[in-house]
């Protein structure tokens, strides 16, 4: 995973977006979106290797099957919400970006509810009386 290639792509995308910003504002946004997606597609291999590690780690833990999928889901929701809100803010639509971010937070909290309930039960069993 050569970080330099990613850095070069990011810089060139920024420069191209800068060039296009004067004549055609919307093309700067398209170039930005394309750069973001290309950079993400370059790290997919490493990301899937990390998630394979999570799955192996999941078998070792006794209660892993319950928690690791939740962690992955929360990661995905948080990443997509952040990706979308930054693209919206980049285009100048701060209100839409803020709302997408808020929706992402609500989704993450919703996904975390089962984990919190199991923690509550654990605490109840530990506390005497």
């Amino acid at each position: 995973m050569d970080i330099f290639k990613i850095a070069i792509i990011g810089i060139s995308g920024t420069l191209l977006a800068g060039i296009l910003k004067e004549q055609k504002k919307e093309y700067a946004l398209y170039v930005g979106l394309a750069t973001v997606i290309v950079i993400f597609s370059m790290i997919i291999k490493q990301l899937s290797a990390i998630f394979d590690f999570f799955r192996i780690w999941q078998q070792d833990m006794s209660y892993g099957e319950f928690y690791v999928p939740v962690i992955l889901k929360i990661l995905g929701v948080a990443y997509i919400a952040d990706f979308t809100s930054q693209i919206c803010k980049d285009a100048g639509e701060n209100a839409i970006g803020g709302k997408v971010e808020m929706a992402g937070k609500v989704m993450v909290f919703y996904l975390a509810i089962p984990v919190m309930t199991s923690i509550m039960e654990l605490i109840n069993t530990l506390l005497p009386g």
């Binding site: 191209l16 004549q23 055609k24 093309y27 170039v31 290309v38």
Partner: peptide
């Protein structure tokens, strides 16, 4: 489709060409 890098340059090229063409 989104793996190769030249998509960014393709989009930028289209943008520049369209801007120039519109001016002309």
């Amino acid at each position: 489709m989104d793996i190769n890098v030249d998509i960014i340059f393709k989009i930028a090229a289209i943008g520049i060409i369209i801007a120039v063409l519109a001016q002309v």
